[in-house]
């Protein structure tokens, strides 16, 4: 197990290396000059060239890469072209909103989707099942920004129950924090609820046909315990897999939701950085997202061993 963990952690190194090279080259090969952006519309060529020199963009590519690479592995992600701040500080400031949004969303998703899926599986073919799965198909087909605007229109503008947009830090109190998060989390969770509910239904249905379910009933166990203790526990591996992926996609996919709800998180930072050709910020955010992705995958794999004693590494 320890050995496995070590191997997996070592395996993240080449992945991150590849991402680093890829994003570095991609940014330099796509059109758009950060110096020109910074200089503004009325700058002369000489002014732009001066900025370019100051940013170190006149150096050969390889040299630029090596400098950035060695700084990065020492924890120095450089200074943002656009914000004129250390990228590490920038990210640290933006991490809380994004994490809050992702975690609240995933909790909301799991607490709705899993019971939905289990009930649909238990009542397979009934009206309940059709209703739940119909809702899930609907949730799947409506884009996030449509749901977001619809929610804002109804709950924020018409009913005035919740704020339209923005973010309050958790240090300012739990209640304001959560009231600002409810609508964006709900908007973001709909598609994941749809997906995970379906997945849960399928996995539970498959397990309900197993012999040990019959054994549990033969013991005189109640249906609710048969479902949770015997069926759901055995169906958990595929469900946890999609929950993990959902979480990873969420963190990467907050860009749209954060724009709609104007939440100052990593998503918004990404948008701003890309629009301003802010190379150090873009590189750092992309690296961070890939690292999170790799680590979540590792956590999913380790969770399997907790859920199913037959899985050992």
């Amino acid at each position: 197990m320890g050995l496995y963990l070590l191997k997996r952690l070592l395996a993240t190194i080449p992945v991150m290396l590849f991402v680093a090279v890829f994003i570095f080259l991609l940014l330099r090969l796509t059109p758009g000059d950060p110096a020109a952006m910074l200089a503004g519309d009325y700058a002369t060529d000489a002014q732009i060239e001066e900025i370019r020199q100051k940013l170190g963009l006149t150096e050969p590519l390889l040299k630029q890469f090596i400098i950035w690479f060695f700084n990065t592995i020492q924890g120095d992600l450089g200074e943002s072209f656009y914000f004129k701040k250390q990228v590490t500080d920038l990210i640290a400031a933006r991490l809380e909103p994004t994490l809050s949004l992702s975690i609240v969303t995933i909790l909301l998703t799991v607490s709705i989707a899993v019971p939905m899926g289990v009930i649909a599986a238990y009542r397979q073919g009934s009206w309940t099942d059709r209703l739940l799965m119909g809702f899930s198909a609907l949730g799947f087909s409506v884009p996030v920004f449509v749901i977001g605007f619809a929610l804002v229109y109804v709950f924020a503008i018409k009913l005035d129950w919740l704020p339209v947009q923005g973010y309050k830090r958790i240090s300012g109190g739990l209640l304001p924090w959560i009231t600002y998060l409810i609508l964006p989390s709900l908007a973001l969770s709909v598609i994941f609820i749809a997906f995970i509910a379906r997945m849960t239904r399928t996995s539970v249905l498959e397990v309900l046909g197993e012999d040990y379910i019959r054994t549990a009933r033969a013991k005189g166990q109640t249906e609710s315990k048969v479902l949770v203790r015997h069926a759901l526990r055995n169906a958990a591996v595929p469900i946890v897999t999609v929950i993990g992926f959902a979480f990873a996609i969420l963190i990467g996919g907050v860009v749209v939701t954060e724009s709609v709800f104007n939440i100052p998180g990593l998503g918004l930072l990404t948008v701003e950085a890309v629009l301003n050709r802010d190379f150090p910020a873009i590189q750092a955010v992309v690296l961070l997202f890939s690292l999170v992705y790799v680590l979540i995958n590792l956590v999913i794999d380790l969770t399997y061993t907790l859920l199913d004693p037959r899985i050992r590494y």
Partner: peptide
């Protein structure tokens, strides 16, 4: 039951 391999819950 017939199949002792499957009649027991594998995760308990």
């Amino acid at each position: 039951f017939q199949e002792p391999m499957t009649a027991l819950n594998p995760v308990a």
